[in-house]
Design a protein around this nucleic acid. Structure first.
Lengths: 231, 231
DNA sequence: TCATCGAATGACTGACCAGTCACATTTTCC
DNA sequence: GGAAAATGTGACTGGTCAGTCATTCGATGA
């Protein structure tokens, strides 16, 4: 989505984009599997069924250029995901932040299942990048993070106006909410890959079932770990 | 702490340990700065003021062996941190989980200031490792994560018996609480390194001041994002 | 049919580095 | 003092890979 622009394109140009897409998909899978450092252009080229030199005709900036092109697509998709949930929520008369977040968590889990590669790249490389000594990389990461926060913010603002939220800075809340989605997915992924560890059944099932996982996280973050006063 | 065993050691052995410590400290700084892949044994050796070959006389398993030795010290320290806070909390008549967590967050922030290198290594490499295709690496990460959870668990169990906690699996709670400490510290670190971004003053100050940051996170996680019913 | 030109290619270069091992240096102990 | 053991060392080897560019390929149009 959003790859082809509106103007009618020449066959030449259409083919060029198709080939670029193929290279991006190949890069995604190699970066996810090997991580940035161990991914080789040779292998990306091979999976895309092109010669290594050809990659340089499609991406500026060599290996790093390809990597950031991949990151761009990831963040675009994540922002779309958030924006979608927020738009739905804002469409109703009275924003229900719990429901909105619950939906978002569900969508994020689905996204992970559909495009595991993309998520793995994010986890493997994003945190590393934000401690890089290269300021431009850090800035890139901050900018993307901010995009996600800004996508979620309108919903929180609306909910806040309705008095539905605790009086704490909304930006920090947004960060916390987004961060915990990542955390949940990482946790689920680890459990799924290695289900052999002894752990309580209750804990297991809560994280296995996407629906329950979303409910769990939503409850934890909106209502807190502490017992409700009535109990 | 806990490096020297109880038995009286020969001068030989004491000197050997001192040298090993020096190598570990050098490795810490290089791994933190460059990340695992770009760290070179040459540089570690240089900072420790030894020849590269000497490292092999002190660590089995070459580069990877040194790396895991560093990771071990990190997790040891983190577990000690948690265990300390938990022991304090359990010593009182009635466990106050909020206070305990607040203390723990404060300690974690202090730890980050004292030994930034160690934390950066953890952030840069741990998540990456838990998606490695090498099962033994994943298992290592899980084991260490579990150690931390188990260190926190007794406090939660006690609080739960006192009816202070919501009826949700304690293990999952423990994970969430620990994970969010990491998240907070990463967030603070990014803000500190790049304070130039436009952001609300309220948000900024909450994360700048360790005390406020700890209070913020504790409130969020224990009492939830949602407004209290009375408001 | 052939000339032209943009695109694809992969062998090659230069740089990097983990791990080894033959040799150098220091310590121990008689 | 000196032999023997322990320890330190860094040049070297073998392997990897990003990026380059001279060459090849194939599409287009005359």
């Amino acid at each position: 989505m959003a790859t082809d622009s509106d103007a009618p394109l020449s066959r030449r140009e259409r083919e060029r984009r198709t080939r670029r897409q193929a290279m991006l998909r190949a890069a995604e899978s190699v970066f996810a599997e090997k991580g940035y450092d161990h991914a080789t252009l040779e292998e990306i080229a091979e999976r895309a069924e092109f010669g290594k030199g050809t990659l340089y005709n499609y991406f500026e900036g060599g290996k790093e250029g390809i990597f950031f092109a991949v990151l761009d697509t990831i963040y675009d998709e994540l922002c779309d995901l958030i924006a979608e949930s927020v738009a739905e929520a804002l469409a109703s008369d009275r924003v229900d932040p719990r429901a909105c977040y619950h939906t978002l968590v569900g969508k994020a889990i689905d996204f992970y299942h559909d495009r595991e590669d993309l998520f793995v790249i994010l986890i493997k490389e994003a945190y590393r990048m934000c401690f890089s000594h290269d300021a431009s990389k850090v800035a890139y990461f901050q900018r993307q993070q901010e995009r996600m926060v800004n996508a979620l913010l309108p919903m929180l603002q609306q909910a806040d106006e309705n008095g539905a939220l605790r009086d704490l800075p909304l930006e920090a809340m947004a960060h916390l909410l987004i961060e915990n989605i990542d955390g949940l997915i990482v946790h689920r992924a680890i459990m799924a890959n290695h289900p052999n560890r002894p752990t309580s059944c209750q804990h297991q099932s809560i994280l296995d079932d996407p629906e329950k996982a979303a409910t769990f996280l939503t409850t934890m973050l909106f209502d807190g770990v502490a017992a409700p006063p009535s109990a």
